[in-house]
Write a protein that binds this DNA or RNA. Sequence first.
DNA 1: TGACAATAGATGCCTAGGCAATTACTGTTA
DNA 2: TAACAGTAATTGCCTAGGCATCTATTGTCA
Lengths: 167, 167
Amino acid sequence: MTQHTLKSANFYAADYRAEDSVGFLMKAVMLSITASVNRRLSEHGLTYAQWGPLLMIQQRRAYTVAELARWSNTDAGAMTRLLDRLEAKGLLKRVRSTEDRRVVKVELTTAGTHAIRDVPAILADVLNAHLSGFSKAEWETMKSYLSRMLANGEILRAQTDATDSAQ
Amino acid sequence: MTQHTLKSANFYAADYRAEDSVGFLMKAVMLSITASVNRRLSEHGLTYAQWGPLLMIQQRRAYTVAELARWSNTDAGAMTRLLDRLEAKGLLKRVRSTEDRRVVKVELTTAGTHAIRDVPAILADVLNAHLSGFSKAEWETMKSYLSRMLANGEILRAQTDATDSAQ
DNA sequence: TGACAATAGATGCCTAGGCAATTACTGTTA
DNA sequence: TAACAGTAATTGCCTAGGCATCTATTGTCA
């Protein structure tokens, strides 16, 4: 079998200070971004977790609970309940599919279309503000670093899965 | 009054694809890190949210609910309940301070000391794995980018606060 | 066709965070 | 010292995610 295996970096040992790590910094940056976005979305009656599904539906890029859950990196159970809340607010409605009666298609209501309208601009604003002073090259470098970390994470989890199932 | 105001970057506009943004990538990386850490911590009966407070207490760098909440970037209410769960598992105990009877001092039990023992090594492992292939210079660059984004976020929230209270 | 595996969605039980009270205590000031 | 503002911790009510389980439905294959 072909098994990608990367040699880990050696930047951290058991005596490092957690608050100096990339993980700690990254969590703080994400908290800053979500806090800023949440504050501006609350005027529109939305939360950080809710903009993704609404936007995907509006852009006609996802229709079902499973697709929305996959895009949001969460599971179907959490997505079901998130859609419950959006439906209770009258922003969307569920329609049982006729071709496959297991799947539920989700559609925006007029209120939902209205609620999502300004969201992309808000997200762009907050991201741009957090990137003040960055050159285009630095921004690209940042994204490449994050992509590499993401790929490393997938390899790590694949290895862990293999180890778990081997015993 | 002196008010830091930075010109925002111009990388994102209302028509960008969310999944190509630094925010989306960063959230995915954080999910990868927390998922890996959680998986390994679960063998020790701990969760990602719980290692921080336990470690701070063990290293004698925080003693009270307020201090632990500040370090964890959360509020005292959430921390109270998190400590409830740790206390229920027998990993720590609360002692009402005698100097100031408002404050509660938190101490590890023997079980708590044992539970936290391997955690720093696990965190270091997971971070190092996610940084496979990074040079020391790239790692330093990454941390400097994150620090700059964090500083930008603080300026942004300071500005928003000022605007909010001005109307 | 009838059994069976796979899939979509929903639900229950858990941890967890944000925000707004509320309670207990402390320090300050009239 | 009595009133008052500020602080520490807790609690209630909300959103939210992870995991296991359940139900309904579909496609497959003996």
